[in-house]
Amino acid sequence: MDESRPIFIQIAEQVENDIIDGVLREDEQIPSTNEFATFFRINPATALKGVNRLVDDGIVAKRRGIGMFVTPGARDRLIERRRADFATEYIRPLIIEAEKLGIDIDELAGLLRAERIQS
């Protein structure tokens, strides 16, 4: 767990990543609050907050007496939201660092292409 951000947000992001990666599919059940708590060694109330955040965002929904399930269309909505944040989260810091090092935009584009071929 990363110290700089609230753990419940990290729990929510973990589930979101699993949905985006296809580890958790739509209509599939996510782990229970207690399972999250014992696995990540965190307070169950913290785990519950993370799950509730996903419920508020419409990513998972409760089925009474059974548990929490990934909602239909959750993956598309998550990807759309992540794309919207991509520029500020990733591109902006990249450009700041590139400017510091005197890498212009064409060189940066070249570096991105070269890196992509390698990976």
């Binding site: 700089s4 951000r5 609230p6 907050k49």
Partner: peptide, 9 residues
């Protein structure tokens, strides 16, 4: 605790 965690930088 959730409010306190990450509340200082």
């Amino acid at each position: 605790a959730d409010e306190v965690r990450g509340s200082a930088t």
